[in-house]
Design a protein around this nucleic acid. Structure first.
Lengths: 136, 136
DNA sequence: ACTAATAGGCACTTTTAGGTAACTAGCTAT
DNA sequence: ATAGCTAGTTACCTAAAAGTGCCTATTAGT
């Protein structure tokens, strides 16, 4: 959205602009952990989001081909959203970001920080993605 | 900033909020490609950024320990910013995001999209980070 | 006949973020 | 004496984004 007045037209900035904003990552996360999900279910899981923002995010991510929208014309209608191949690719990297974020913002095992960091055996996971994310 | 009214308190959302917003990624990129850089030089390289936003971003990233600030009390003073270990870790992942963004938003080799996607042999780089980013 | 459910759309208001411009300190050079 | 350099800070204004509430279609159930 509003890619016209964009600060930097390079691909990664486009992508970051897509991912930026409240709920977007959380939404992707819900879809990656729960599989294809209907609109109402999404709204229920993402507690606090407004329908307006949820639809905005869904529309945008659909336009970026990160997720797909499946409309079933039953009564009442069923609309299901799920990750596309692009979406799957994305959550792989998001996993790594999450691994990093976990190390940074969670679990300071001994002390917050000291003058020398000789005891920092925390950050040796080598982006191994061994920490399966559980807390979004 | 404004982590209090945060939508989702999980680590990766915190991190995304840090990275979100105009210029932030670009700033990290400049620091990663140019090494430690002074304030004025950053402002010159990131064409179009206001001093206000630049200082905001620098302060925030410094607080997140993604970059450091070195103040040399000469006259006129020299302030140099550079990536910390965290910052280095981050740009590694950013590289992958960039790789992905390049594939998605650059170079559609044959056709934009067709009815069936049997010809989508585009996305097989396996997050190899072989594409060194050049265009931020 | 009327209510309920799903998946939103639309208009209005509020909040937030970014831009702009003016100002600062302390010393140097002209 | 005065202007200029760096690295910002501060106040003010505007534009974009988010929140809120009300509205729709269609049919099944009571």
């Amino acid at each position: 959205m509003s890619r016209s007045r964009h600060s930097c037209p390079c691909p990664v900035s486009i992508l970051m602009e897509v991912l930026s904003g409240p709920w977007t990552m959380y939404l992707l996360w819900v879809l990656s952990t729960n599989g294809p999900t209907r609109f109402g279910e999404l709204k229920r899981r993402i507690e606090g989001i407004s329908t307006k923002v949820l639809t905005e995010r869904l529309r945008m991510l659909e336009q970026e081909e990160i997720l797909y929208r499946h409309y079933e014309p039953t009564v009442p209608p069923q609309v299901t959203y799920g990750l596309t191949d692009r979406g799957q690719e994305l959550v792989v990297i998001l996993d790594q970001l999450n691994d990093l974020a976990q190390r940074w913002y969670l679990s300071p095992p001994v002390e917050p920080l000291a003058a020398d960091d000789s005891a920092s055996q925390i950050g040796n996971s080598e982006t191994g993605m061994d920490v399966v994310v559980a807390s979004l």
